[in-house]
Design a protein around this nucleic acid. Sequence first.
DNA 1: GCCTTTCGTTCATCCGAACAACCAAATCCC
DNA 2: GGGATTTGGTTGTTCGGATGAACGAAAGGC
Lengths: 408, 408
Amino acid sequence: MATDRRAGTGTNQEAVRRHNLGTLLRHVHRAEQVSRAELTSVMGLNRSTIAGLVGELESLGVIERGVPAGGRRGAGRPSAGVALTDQGPYVIAVDLGVDRVSVARIGLGGTVQQRNRAPIEGVAEAWQVGSSVATLIRGVVEDAPASAPLVGIGISVPGLIRRSDGLVRLAPNLEWHDVSFGSIVLAALGLDVPISLANDADLGALAEHERGVGVGVDDLIYVSGNVGVGAGVISAGRRLEGAGGYAGEVGHLRFNPAGKPCHCGNRGCWETEVGAHAIAAAIRCPEDKVPQLGEVLDSFTEPTKELRVIGGHLGSGLASIVNAFNPQMVVLGGYFRALYTLVGAEVNRGLAERALPAPLESVTLSLPGLADDSVLFGAAEIAFEPLFVDPVAALGTALVDVRSRLAG
Amino acid sequence: MATDRRAGTGTNQEAVRRHNLGTLLRHVHRAEQVSRAELTSVMGLNRSTIAGLVGELESLGVIERGVPAGGRRGAGRPSAGVALTDQGPYVIAVDLGVDRVSVARIGLGGTVQQRNRAPIEGVAEAWQVGSSVATLIRGVVEDAPASAPLVGIGISVPGLIRRSDGLVRLAPNLEWHDVSFGSIVLAALGLDVPISLANDADLGALAEHERGVGVGVDDLIYVSGNVGVGAGVISAGRRLEGAGGYAGEVGHLRFNPAGKPCHCGNRGCWETEVGAHAIAAAIRCPEDKVPQLGEVLDSFTEPTKELRVIGGHLGSGLASIVNAFNPQMVVLGGYFRALYTLVGAEVNRGLAERALPAPLESVTLSLPGLADDSVLFGAAEIAFEPLFVDPVAALGTALVDVRSRLAG
DNA sequence: GCCTTTCGTTCATCCGAACAACCAAATCCC
DNA sequence: GGGATTTGGTTGTTCGGATGAACGAAAGGC
């Protein structure tokens, strides 16, 4: 079972049921459409046990019988499909970007049921952004079935989030310090639901691991190029968080001690070479378009000499990451996606030059499989998480008829 | 239960028993002397369940009733102690150092029952080292009780070890490439027992986490200064291995692109500034004493100017590690222990200058709690590991009467 | 159209954790 | 010092839930 941070605990029998129920639901969530036969083989449990678990989840209204999913071809009775219900649980995913905020209502299976977005004008106060987010949330729950339970809200923030309580320690672009953004959003909504915050790169990694290019890859790193540079690390299939939750801050790795000054107070951080401002300067992109650096880069058909150099720096810095974490896959998110499309050769070369042979041979660089929605899906995943740890408890505390509650 | 790499599995009832039996034994192993009452509270199981588990382990000959361990003071019947038996299972731990190899017979609880060491002369062939290790092993099992089962052999290697099969991909000091050292040792012994190999820094981290300064610290990094520089990472209480098992290779982090050439083919790796050869050059230590750099540094009473600079570099590099992994504790092993004792102030300053405030505030630098034996104890831990995953199975396959088998 | 294969369903079984009752061994307190 | 109290080991029972066998259902293969 999923030993969380607290290890050394014994397993009692309720925990077994919780765990099995949760992992079964997790499998359905991942595959969206599974057969019971697949579940028995994947989970290593008996047919009748699976039947019991499926029955319980059916009575909870989470799943229903699906079409006899044509997974296997051959003789034998086809296995009954397990499908997600329309009125099933959903979450609210919030992606706080640099210049815009995206909100989506996402159901089990990762289906976006409704989405909405709004720009963020310049540097905004937390309460302003919070009320904007609240408005967007009201929008996306409008058409939600009244009986469908809201499991929680997941918020991606481009900054350092304290693991213990979700406090935003630092969000450089937003100029936030120690902001309890979760409480702000809940206050603006007038609701009390489970709310989780996490770093954008961490969520990108999670989403790409769950439903992107990294499915089946248990050691992957999502390197996010936003205005800042950060990384989310999945190791052995779980998120690498670190003691405070700040793991993966690779933007300030020492890159060139004789380099440019960085806003962190040092000189020659990696970010000063491959950060958005550095790239913008190299391609003479006006400052106000920096938040849309990805699109700006997309408009290039040929890489410039400056971009090639930056590509090499990107690869060279990735080499440090590959050496340190030994991932099987590195997903290049944010504007790195566009950059890699342009100067992939230089990135690969920079990586190959500096990485050690052993970790190098098992790593591949990839583009995100979820395009620009990685982070949003990641936010949905952390919000769903309690449901997979204990479905019965999570559904018990979930909120029904959210629309009318929000109206009041 | 301890989900290994394979996630998504259901829990059946045998697994529950295995897990509970294993974690109970792990607790006894960690504490050496626990009361049953402590076990009930730590493991969250019922008194009678603990009694059943303890009974089973007693009948396996692993533990026995101990003195009524005086943990709690106050009213009430004192809880019976659970102690380890003399004839209980043991492992062989091997620490392959730069210039010497240490071998120990270690029992549950981490008690060194017998130990032995031999020098390694210059660059040695793997088979030579293998037969030397085999001889040392024969030595340390000499006085082992005939009925005590040998669970396995754990070997620490200063190099890159492939996780899947324990192949030594690269051991720079020994000049080994792709050496199946485990098979070599087993062949030299004429035995077939479970054998595990791992990187020395990884094992240092494990040992300091289990029984050193890092007890209770779930996110720690052991930075090992041997001839090369490497790190072992414990995150959320488990070893960070990476896809191939090479995670933590921080010696070749990019430190100063204009720096000295490194044996890895690049320029300015961190190792070129804080590696043994760099330090030896700075203090004019003769080349042949480099393997004993720790003792050489211990003989200093005052730090030289050169050492202060190196201390700063050490701290500066640690900052990258702290940013990337966000550990709660960094343990400075190998000659870094002596170096930190000399120039701790400079190390701290270098770290504080370059690390981000958030990860910095929760990290502390420490000296190893197990002195020079961290790695050796780590080797014991990985050898014991199967015993805590499934005690019954591990004892079933364990080897009894090893001495006479080795004689034949 | 029958055999084979695979799977859902049902029921009995079994394993092991939990619970309750009882007894044992210490401290506390008058 | 002796009962009250508190804590914990022991024992027998209960109960939850995974398992296994038996049977029927739904497909493909010939």
